Amino acid sequence: MTFSGPSWTRTSGVGACHFVLTGGQTQFHPALGVETLLAARGAPPGNLGPEARAAHMLCRTTRLSVADIAAQLRLPLPVTRVMLSQLLDAGALHIASAPYHPSDTAILEKLLAKLHEL
């Protein structure tokens, strides 16, 4: 069986490739929901791998969600979230729109009031 990604092809060890891609990091930024929109900031750092560079380039022209970036790069969502966290920490990306948090009752109350008006 052959697995392929945007810049590598392996016949085995896909998990090892993801480990290398994230530098062994497994935790991601808590604000990175699948619907979080990201945008690029300036030029990409020179030490980026091909996948991280591709993610940065995708976000230069338009704001993209974490899920869209993962799909376009053909990477698993958890791996993409770790990689994007690293780009956030490096200042290469910024959060353009944070995910909705259901605990924000003010928004829900406004929505309910508008629905009652209908």
Rank of each mutant, 00 (worst) to 15 (best):
A90R: 11
G91D: 10
A98T: 05
G24D: 09
T11W: 10
F19A: 15
A31C: 02
G5D: 10
A39F: 02
D89K: 05
G13Q: 11
S97K: 15
S85Y: 06
A90Y: 00
S85C: 01
W8Y: 12
R53A: 14
E35M: 05
S65D: 10
V82D: 02
Q72T: 11
P50H: 14
V66G: 06
S97C: 10
L73E: 09
V14R: 13
T61D: 08
P78H: 12
T80I: 04
E51Q: 08
Q86H: 02
R63N: 07
G33N: 04
A90Q: 06
P76C: 06
A40M: 08
V82K: 04
L58H: 06
E51W: 04
Q25F: 03
A67R: 13
R81D: 01
V14G: 02
G23A: 04
G91C: 09
P50Q: 15
V20G: 07
N47S: 12
H94P: 01
A70S: 15
T11L: 12
C17V: 14
L84K: 01
C17I: 03
R10Q: 10
L77R: 12
T11E: 11
Q25I: 04
I95K: 03
M57V: 11
E35S: 14
Q86A: 03
G49C: 12
Q86F: 00
A43H: 10
G42D: 04
T80G: 09
P6W: 06
R81V: 04
G91Y: 13
T11V: 07
A98M: 02
E35K: 04
L93M: 11
L37Q: 06
L88H: 06
A54M: 15
R10W: 08
F28Y: 15
V82M: 05
L84S: 02
A54L: 15
H18G: 07
T11F: 10
F28G: 03
Q27H: 12
A67K: 14
A67T: 14
L87V: 06
G15H: 06
E51S: 14
H94T: 12
L64A: 11
G33W: 04
A55H: 00
G33K: 05
G15I: 01
R81N: 02
G91Q: 08
C17Y: 14
H18L: 14
G91V: 11
G23N: 09
L38P: 07
A92F: 01
L77C: 05
G13N: 09
G91R: 11
L64P: 00
C17W: 10
S4P: 00
P44Y: 03
D68C: 09
S7G: 08
V79I: 15
G15P: 05
L64G: 00
R53Q: 15
G23Q: 03
A71F: 07
A40C: 05
L77Q: 12
P45L: 10
M83C: 11
L93R: 05
C17E: 15
A92W: 00
L77H: 03
C17Q: 09
L73D: 04
S85D: 01
A67D: 14
Q72S: 13
S65Q: 13
E51T: 03
P6G: 14
G33T: 13
L64C: 09
D89Y: 00
R74H: 15
S65N: 12
G91P: 08
